[in-house]
Amino acid sequence: MEFTLISLLNGVTYGLLLFMLCGGLTLIFSMMGILNFAHASFYMLGAYLAFQLSAWLGFWPAFFLAPPLVGVAGALVERYGLRRAHRHGHVAELLFTFGLSFLAVEMVQLVWGKAVVDYRVPPSLEGTLFTLYSTSFPVYKGFMMLVSVGMLALLAALLAYTRTGLIIKAALSRPDMMQALGHDVPRIFTLVFAGGAALAGLAGVIGGNAFVTEPGMAAAVGPIVFVVVVVGGLGSLLGAFVASLLIGILQTFMVGWDYSIIDVARLFGMQLHSTSALTRLSLTQLAPIMPYLLMVAILIFRPRGLMGARS
C-alpha cells in the first residue's frame, strides 16, 4: 500500500513534468507539421538560466524570469530560423531543429562547462511535506506538482475561454482561412512556439534542481518527449497529457518492482525454466526501455496514438 501510494505520487509528479515538456511540442507539431528536435533544448536552457539567475538574484526571481526568457529565445528561433527554413520544405526544417539542438549543447558547455552545475532546491522548499507510513514526501515534489497543475489549468483555461485560445485552435485547423479572415497567422505561430518553449523552460526550471542540470540533460529527456507525443497521438494535447501520466506512473512503478520476467510469467500461470540472462532481468532494469517498448507497440497496433487524429 505504502509503495503503491508513494509510487503513484512520484509517478504523477514525473508525468506532469513530462507533460509540461511535451504539451508545447504537441502544439508546435499540430501547427507546423514537423517534430521540433530542439524542443528539449529549451528545457535545458530553462534549467541553466534558472541556475544562473538564482546565483545572481535568488531562486524566486529566477523562477519567474527564466521561463519568459526561454519563451523569447523560442520566438527568435521561430521568427528568424524556422520560418526561413520552412520555405525550403520539411526536411530543411527538421535539419534546422536538429542542428539547433547540437548548437544548444555546445553553447551550454561553452558558457557553463561540461560538468554538472550546482543548481539546488532552495532552502525554503527543502524538507518533508508529509510522511506516509514510513516514507517521506518532499516539499519540493509537492511544489513541482502544484506548479505543473497550476500551469496546465492556466493553459487549458486560455485555450478554452479566451479569444486568443479560439484563434490558436482555429489557426491549427485552417491557417489559410484564418489569414483570409484577417488574422496574422505567422504571428500566432510565433506566439505558440514561444509559449511551448516557455513551458519547456519552466519544466527545466523546476526539474533542473530536482534532477541534475548538465549538458546531457536535453539528450536524456529528448527521446522520452518524442515517445510521449507518439504514444499520445501526434497533435493531440489531451493524448499527450494521458501519455505523460501513463509513462510517468508506469516507469516509476517499474523502477520499484524487483520482479524478474520469470516471476511475472508465474503470475500469469506460466512456468518459465529458462536460465537465460534475458528472463532473469528484473522489471527495474527494464524500466528505462519501457517508454520505447510502449512506443513501438503503439506504432504497430495503433499508429495514430491513443488520441491522435492522424497517423
Binding site: 483570409a180 479572415l181 484577417g182
Partner: peptide, 23 residues
Amino acid sequence: KPHQIAWRGLGYVPEDRAVFPDL
C-alpha cells in the same frame, strides 16, 4: 499578405467553406 488585404476591407468565402469543425 492575406491578413493585410483582409484588414483593408476585402472578404473571402472559399469554395470548400473552411468551417472550423471543432468550434
